[in-house]
């Protein structure tokens, strides 16, 4: 059973629907026991990182999430709050990934939010098994994690940033695999098979 952490962050339906299409068993939960019994944990997230971090702290789940030894996947803002710090609301985050989250600076051909399909490069994890470098996935975000030793995939919008991060059993993706067509489905399937 996959636990999707329920901490009152925007749209959880698309993650549920993606797991449903893959035939995976899942539950939306904020119950520590259910999370402990799960085989995999997904930390979704849209909207504002400092609010997401505040909501997550309010559930009291942060210490137990940090202790998990099973595969954990943060998506979008879920990934950002697994980093050290976010400029969005100047918030200390969970500190799992050794990265800082910064705001994109808009330029004539660099629209913010970074919205749409962009290529993945420098793929370095079983999470990307069967995915070719250059594959397109769907992004929508105004803040990004810089490159760091935990980076396992990159994308470029102006400068290069972390499209995915990994530290031990913790994974994070800046893009939305649940909205990234067949490529995204394969990435979620790879995660479930970890």
């Amino acid at each position: 059973m996959i636990a999707i952490i329920d901490y009152k962050t925007g749209n959880l339906r698309s993650v549920e629907n993606a797991l449903y299409r893959l035939g995976a068993e899942f539950r939306l939960t904020a119950d520590p026991e259910e999370i402990r019994d799960a085989t995999h944990v997904i930390l979704p997230g849209v909207g504002n990182a400092s609010e997401a971090m505040a909501n997550l702290r309010e559930t009291g789940l942060v210490p137990s999430l940090l202790r998990l030894r099973k595969p954990v996947l943060g998506i979008c803002v879920g990934m950002q709050i697994m980093c050290r710090h976010s400029e969005e609301g100047d918030v200390e985050c969970m500190g799992i990934f050794d990265a800082f989250v910064k705001k994109f600076v808009a330029a004539p051909d660099l629209k913010v939010p970074h919205t749409g399909w962009n290529n993945l490069s420098n793929l370095e994890s079983k999470l990307f098994r069967g995915i070719d470098s250059g594959a397109f996935v769907y992004f929508v975000h105004s803040y990004y994690a810089g490159l760091c030793p935990d980076t396992i995939a990159t994308a470029r919008q102006g400068e290069m940033f972390s499209a995915a991060l990994k530290y031990e059993n913790f994974y994070g993706v800046q893009f939305h695999p649940e909205k990234s067509g067949a490529v995204g489905e394969r990435i979620i399937k790879n995660f479930i098979e970890l």
Partner: peptide
């Protein structure tokens, strides 16, 4: 639609 479609 959200059940069946895997793009935004």
């Amino acid at each position: 639609i959200s059940h069946e479609i895997n793009i935004p």
